[in-house]
Simulated assay, not measured.
Amino acid sequence: MAILKFRVYFEEDDSIYRDVVIKHTQNFLQLHETILKAYEFDNKHQATFYRSNDNWQQGREISLEKYDKKYKVDPLIMAETTIGSEVKNTNQRFTYTYDFHKVWNFLIELINVSKEADSRQEYPAVVRSEGIGPKQYGTKGLLGDKFADIEEKYDLTRGAEGFNVKNEEGEDMGIEESAEGYQDEED
Rank of each mutant, 00 (worst) to 15 (best):
V127N: 03
R128D: 10
E130Q: 15
E130G: 01
S119P: 09
G144F: 00
F163E: 13
L156T: 08
F106W: 01
L156D: 01
L143K: 03
S129W: 02
A125S: 14
G144T: 00
L143V: 03
E152S: 14
Q121A: 13
T139Y: 13
L143W: 02
L107W: 13
Y123D: 04
V127D: 02
L156P: 01
G141E: 04
L110C: 04
E161D: 13
L156C: 05
F106A: 07
K153T: 10
T157C: 02
F163N: 13
P124M: 08
G133D: 07
Y154T: 05
A148E: 13
K153C: 02
E151C: 13
I111A: 07
E109T: 07
T139E: 09
I108V: 15
A117V: 03
N112K: 15
R128F: 14
D118E: 07
G162M: 08
N112F: 05
L142T: 10
V126D: 02
V126C: 12
K115F: 10
Q136N: 04
I111Q: 06
K140N: 06
F106K: 04
T157G: 04
T139M: 10
G131N: 05
Y137P: 00
S114L: 08
D145P: 08
G144E: 01
F163P: 02
E130R: 14
N112A: 13
L142Q: 08
G144D: 00
Y123P: 03
K153L: 07
K115I: 03
A125R: 07
V126I: 13
L143R: 00
R120F: 12
L142S: 11
P134H: 00
R128H: 14
Q121H: 05
E161Y: 09
P124N: 09
I111P: 04
Q121R: 12
A117K: 09
A125M: 04
D149N: 11
K135C: 11
I132F: 03
V113W: 05
L156Q: 06
K140I: 07
A148F: 06
E130F: 06
F147S: 11
Y137F: 14
K146Y: 05
K115M: 11
D118F: 07
V113G: 05
